[in-house]
Amino acid sequence: MATLRERKSYREQILGALYEAIEGNRLLGMTGTRLAQDLDIPEQDLAAACTYLAGEGLITVDWEPGNIPAMVTLTHQGIRLMEAEEEKRG
């Protein structure tokens, strides 16, 4: 099981990867397989992070059997959060 620091890092990485991938187009997303590979996140931790982020209303997830994220997309709220983070960084 991932530590709290790892779990937070996974969530941030997922949001960042989605934001970068969609380039402002909310209709685009990423497969769970691609997220896991690109970010090197264990499957179980990816599912937990996606469940958390979906619960916060930041992403939507289409699930495959076995609790595996099939497609992950940012919500409007998720995009707004990432835009605010981008503005903070300048």
Rank of each mutant, 00 (worst) to 15 (best):
1 M>I: 07
2 A>P: 12
4 L>H: 13
5 R>M: 15
5 R>D: 12
7 R>A: 11
8 K>V: 04
8 K>M: 10
8 K>G: 06
9 S>K: 09
10 Y>L: 03
11 R>D: 09
12 E>Q: 14
12 E>Y: 01
12 E>V: 04
13 Q>S: 14
14 I>H: 02
15 L>D: 05
16 G>S: 13
16 G>C: 05
16 G>T: 04
17 A>Y: 06
18 L>V: 07
21 A>I: 09
21 A>R: 06
21 A>P: 10
22 I>D: 01
23 E>H: 15
24 G>F: 10
24 G>C: 12
26 R>C: 03
27 L>P: 00
28 L>N: 13
29 G>P: 06
30 M>Y: 05
30 M>W: 06
30 M>E: 06
33 T>Y: 12
34 R>E: 11
34 R>N: 11
34 R>S: 10
36 A>S: 15
37 Q>Y: 07
37 Q>W: 07
39 L>I: 08
40 D>P: 00
40 D>A: 13
44 Q>H: 12
44 Q>N: 08
44 Q>T: 10
45 D>A: 14
45 D>H: 11
45 D>S: 11
45 D>I: 01
47 A>H: 05
47 A>T: 10
48 A>G: 03
50 C>N: 03
51 T>V: 09
51 T>M: 07
51 T>S: 10
52 Y>I: 08
53 L>C: 05
56 E>Y: 05
56 E>D: 12
56 E>M: 12
56 E>N: 04
56 E>A: 15
57 G>C: 11
58 L>T: 01
59 I>E: 01
59 I>S: 00
59 I>P: 01
60 T>V: 12
61 V>Q: 01
62 D>Q: 10
63 W>L: 04
64 E>G: 08
64 E>C: 09
64 E>T: 07
65 P>R: 11
66 G>M: 13
66 G>I: 15
66 G>K: 13
67 N>A: 14
67 N>L: 12
67 N>H: 13
68 I>Q: 12
68 I>K: 10
69 P>Y: 00
69 P>G: 02
70 A>I: 00
71 M>H: 13
71 M>E: 13
72 V>E: 04
72 V>Y: 03
73 T>F: 05
75 T>G: 05
76 H>G: 14
76 H>P: 07
77 Q>T: 08
77 Q>A: 14
78 G>V: 01
78 G>Y: 03
79 I>W: 01
80 R>H: 08
80 R>I: 08
80 R>T: 06
81 L>D: 06
82 M>D: 04
82 M>N: 08
83 E>N: 13
83 E>C: 02
83 E>H: 04
84 A>P: 03
84 A>V: 12
84 A>N: 09
84 A>Q: 08
85 E>F: 10
86 E>R: 15
88 K>C: 02
88 K>A: 07
89 R>K: 15
90 G>I: 09
